[in-house]
Design a protein around this nucleic acid. Sequence first.
DNA 1: CGGATTCCTTGACCTGAGTCAATAATGGGG
DNA 2: CCCCATTATTGACTCAGGTCAAGGAATCCG
Lengths: 208, 208
Amino acid sequence: MNTLIEHILDPEGGGGQRRVFPAGGVLFNAGDPADGLYYVKSGEVRIYKMDSQGREVEVVRLEPGDFFGDAVLFVHREFPAFAEAVQDSEVFFLEKGQLLRGLEEVPGLAHDFITLLARKCVTLNQRIEALGLQTVRQRLIQFLLTRCQGRGVCTVELDMKKAELARILGTISETLSRNLKQLQEEGMILVTGRSIRITDCSRLRNEQ
Amino acid sequence: MNTLIEHILDPEGGGGQRRVFPAGGVLFNAGDPADGLYYVKSGEVRIYKMDSQGREVEVVRLEPGDFFGDAVLFVHREFPAFAEAVQDSEVFFLEKGQLLRGLEEVPGLAHDFITLLARKCVTLNQRIEALGLQTVRQRLIQFLLTRCQGRGVCTVELDMKKAELARILGTISETLSRNLKQLQEEGMILVTGRSIRITDCSRLRNEQ
DNA sequence: CGGATTCCTTGACCTGAGTCAATAATGGGG
DNA sequence: CCCCATTATTGACTCAGGTCAAGGAATCCG
């Protein structure tokens, strides 16, 4: 991973370009030529598609340290999805030619790039399982547990609208609302605005 | 892709091992050490997981020309899923060390391996969309359309049980049955045993 | 402060799809 | 050719979760 990041951040040898987007800014639209890959230095970017009825469906959400476009680059001529900054974001763009050159010339870069793609494949596989097998409730619990590192009692502060969390979980705000209420009635959490107090971590964990 | 296949099939330089499995044979179980990748030369292999209730869930189905284990190799120590031959199958196994050596020494191999992983990422993404956004009906239609290359009228011969097709589509046989019946009543297909005559390709296509 | 806008919750309702259970159809062996 | 096992269909039921619509709650701002 390291070699690749060094490469893309290096304005001299690597050839990565720094680009800054305000919250809501569009990195690219579906159909734009896929001529390079992106690295998120800071901020947050979401990738989404439109279905036939024009509804947005979130594909993935990128945080600092994530790459995007890496796979598309080798398969399609055009981006198949939309990319939009959720927060003010600083990203680095590496043009395809520069990447290919780097893969041949920079020792270790190919290996790190392979590792990156491999991680992505594994993550995607996990996502498929989650969508196919888990309920909204389970996905919500999983989300909460990853933000409260194992401690028995802790508080998760949402730094987003609930509608946004819903989209991340692959559902809608109404359903999220009902699930949060349910968990609260069962005494596992306590919701106050955008802060969620986890009162029974182990019981949450028992549901996976 | 080519370099990699040549490499894995070459008993001398590449170091791939030929392995043959009868229908129903187990290539590996979840938890087995992920010490190499597989290439399917002939036959058919399915990869599946168990959920907490012991139900099997199919992750992917591999046909001749497909690789698997390639991504897991770089991420986990153990296979996270089960692999089982659906038909008599001939596969080639390339040990991790051999692969790493090849990636460094064989020109073009790294690039082909990257392309392989990239394709996989894109396919997985499409699968996520399909599972998240499409109904069983849509997935069935998509399956039918890919086997009838655009011609107005043609017949798709299923070379498997309907229950198996159901699993491929991420559903169960009852639901598949109902969907086939529905499409037939709407006059788009004609089902006779395991052969499905597509009578109105364009109308199918209109539903995506 | 008070209106307006955005965000969140709730209820009523509907639909897709899974489960269970009961047949029907099919297809090999003996 | 018939019997049994596998495979396929059908019906009745249940449930998660989405849609629509109506209120609350919170927040922003002149």
